[in-house]
């Protein structure tokens, strides 16, 4: 890692290098240094999942990840799963089926759902509920979110 207080990793498919003291949390690096504000800060203690990003493809809490430890790894944020034009199948389903209300938890859910569908293209309802159970939504009661993920699973990518 080197002790030069920097971190190098792949962010949304591009190499990035940033100044980064050891105590910097990945969420802070993303939001405050790199200004990728799509990843949200909800509780800062790992309960709400608003800060979910993919690390090497797996949904992970960026609020409980030291930024220096993503050295040489691949990080994907909501900005990285959003197409240049239009929306991904998951995103489209979230909009059309009312799976986003206040929207603050939504980027985290989109990350979790995107990873779930990559791993299980046709998850059962209980697999979906299990997969999203680290992402907290206070608006929807989760039902529309489950429906949206089911719908996205059924549609072409």
């Amino acid at each position: 890692m080197g002790s030069d207080d920097r971190v190098s990793f792949t962010l949304n498919d591009r190499p990035v290098q940033a100044a980064c003291p050891p105590e910097r949390i990945l969420l802070d690096l993303l939001r405050e240094e790199l200004r990728l504000t799509g990843t949200k800060r909800g509780c800062d203690l790992g309960t709400c999942g608003c800060c979910t990003v993919l690390i090497d493809g797996r949904p992970t809490l960026s609020c409980l990840t030291l930024a220096r430890l993503v050295e040489a790894r691949s990080v994907t944020t909501i900005e990285g799963v959003s197409p240049a034009q239009g929306l991904s199948a998951v995103q489209r389903a979230f909009v059309e089926l009312g799976a986003t209300q206040c929207g603050f938890c939504t980027p985290g859910f989109v990350m979790t759902a995107t990873a779930l569908l990559r791993e299980h293209p046709h998850p059962s309802r209980s697999e979906i509920e299990q997969a999203i159970s680290g992402n907290l939504c206070r608006c929807t009661g989760y039902l529309a979110i489950v429906r949206a993920i089911e719908s996205a699973a059924g549609s072409a990518p």
Binding site: R58, T60, S133
Partner: peptide, 12 residues
């Protein structure tokens, strides 16, 4: 394993 916290916690 399935009962620990949440899938996001289990990822790390």
């Amino acid at each position: 394993l399935r009962e620990v916290a949440t899938p996001l916690v289990r990822a790390s």
